[in-house]
Design a protein around this nucleic acid. Structure first.
Lengths: 114, 114
DNA sequence: GCGCCATATGCCTTGACAGGCATATACCAG
DNA sequence: CTGGTATATGCCTGTCAAGGCATATGGCGC
């Protein structure tokens, strides 16, 4: 359970991240929204925190979790080379591949993002 | 093992897909490039094919596998909502969230529920 | 036909991990 | 302090998938 790919393979964890996109949430709120038993929520949050995908601040007895999506950039980066395949015409993808599956070797210069 | 998230959780499968980005490959070529035992390669390719991520054509005794990245769009779509977070300033992410994530949120007031 | 090459599949073992449940910790109000 | 609330953790169990290995399938050349 190291890579972000393993982390987001779990549907409940994806749901939690999805919830946190709009706003930070307490454990109880997550529990109620997703109808996941509280220990399970805490465990998933533990995994997400260890992976740096969320962080928590203390609010009385509650812990408020918020998104820290930087690790998802690894996913973004991995996905990038594939994006050019469907970016144009998805329906024509197959014949497109048949036709030119490897003459257009465009430069692989990694985009520097800021 | 249905969702594309599970499929790409496996490092060898990601490597295979990465190989196929540049050109179609036979099983043997994949085996040699990635140094994965042949049965393992075939099994991963089976999973990828069932998920619609690759397709194969017959070339004599060989099977040439090529990429069919449409299912990765699901990944792309899931990732989209998070992209806005890091697209601007990752370093300023935290204060950004602090500022506008939740206007209605009570700061330290212990909310009694029910 | 026979052997050879390339790929697929079946069986088995092992390890990881999610879920359930009980319990621990921590904090608050009175 | 007491009781109640919020969250975390530990243990156990079932499941499921990856890896290893042997073997099956199928096309090729002779």
């Amino acid at each position: 359970m190291q890579s972000v790919f393993d982390i987001i393979a779990e549907p409940n964890r994806r749901a939690i991240l999805g919830l946190l996109v709009s706003a930070e949430q307490s454990v109880g709120e997550i529990e109620r929204h997703l109808r996941i038993p509280q220990p399970a929520v805490s465990k998933h949050l533990r995994v997400l925190r260890d992976a740096g995908l969320v962080e928590s601040t203390v609010d009385a007895q509650r812990r408020l979790y918020r998104l820290k999506p930087e690790p998802l950039e690894e996913l973004e980066a991995w996905l990038a080379p594939f994006r050019r395949f469907w970016s144009a015409h998805i329906d024509a993808l197959e014949r497109h591949l048949d036709r030119m599956d490897r003459p257009t070797r465009t430069k692989k210069k990694p985009r520097r993002r800021r």
